[in-house]
């Protein structure tokens, strides 16, 4: 991970709204720190997906990351989270 530069992250507001949308119970709330941590988690998930897909493309000697590359890394990615 690159230190120093501000990394691209999800917005706290987006993640908060996403979580509330998926809750089954309307009464469920999310604490402030929990939203920050979930933002971190979701960002890591997306970064990991992109990194693994790029690595897969690299092993197949391709300059472009294609859907086939992503399909190959998807099962393990889902098992890891």
């Amino acid at each position: 991970m690159a230190d120093g530069e501000p990394e691209v992250m999800f917005k706290k507001e987006t993640v908060g709204k996403l979580l509330s949308m998926f809750f089954k119970d309307e009464k469920t709330r999310v604490g402030g720190d929990a939203v920050i941590l979930m933002t971190e988690m979701l960002t890591i998930f997306v970064r990991e997906a992109a990194r693994r897909a790029a690595k897969q493309a690299h092993t197949e000697h391709s300059d472009a990351v294609d859907i086939e590359n992503f399909e190959k890394i998807l099962p393990q990615l889902l098992l890891d989270f």
């Binding site: 996403l18 979580l19 998926f22 979701l42 897909a53 294609d66 590359n69 998807l74 990615l77």
Partner: peptide, 24 residues
Amino acid sequence: KEFNKLVIAAITETAFKQCDIFAK
């Protein structure tokens, strides 16, 4: 590397679904 648009859409869809699982 250059990311195909389809890959970006697929990652979005996966992240969305994963968020659903996390939330539940």
